[in-house]
């Protein structure tokens, strides 16, 4: 029986940037645990020596030429933005630098 604690769920929710209430965290703890039980049947399979499949088709080296193509104007790019200032996307202050 898998068990994901509420604390683990809280950590995952932060990684995923989802604000959840304590009730939601508790419900998710149960639901994720149940799903992991279902997944348990494949965790037990012997897959030693089996390569992973990331892609359904065996394609390689798909490349495009280095030629400019028209993109969007700044106005088009910014049209959907929740907040714009000075031709740029405005966001609340960023805590901490880029990881």
């Amino acid at each position: 029986m898998s068990r994901i604690s509420v604390e683990e769920v809280r950590h995952v929710a932060l990684l995923a940037r989802l604000e959840l209430s304590d009730d939601e965290l508790a419900v998710l703890s149960g639901e994720l645990s149940a799903l992991l039980d279902h997944v348990e049947q494949i965790r037990r399979l012997d897959t030693s020596g089996v390569p992973p499949t990331a892609h359904p088709l065996p394609m390689r080296n798909v490349l495009r030429e280095d030629e400019p193509r028209p993109g969007l104007s700044a106005a088009e790019a910014l049209a959907a933005a929740p907040a714009v200032e000075d031709g740029r996307y405005s966001v609340p202050s960023i805590l901490g630098d880029e990881p």
Partner: peptide, 29 residues
């Protein structure tokens, strides 16, 4: 929100429905 991270958290918490949140959680885990 007052900072970008809290804005992300609240936006996504409020903007996604229960099933989408559930799958994001499973996948992140």
């Amino acid at each position: 929100a007052g900072d970008a991270r809290t804005m992300n958290l609240r936006t996504r918490g409020a903007g996604f429905g229960a099933e989408v949140r559930r799958r994001i959680m499973i996948g992140t885990y």
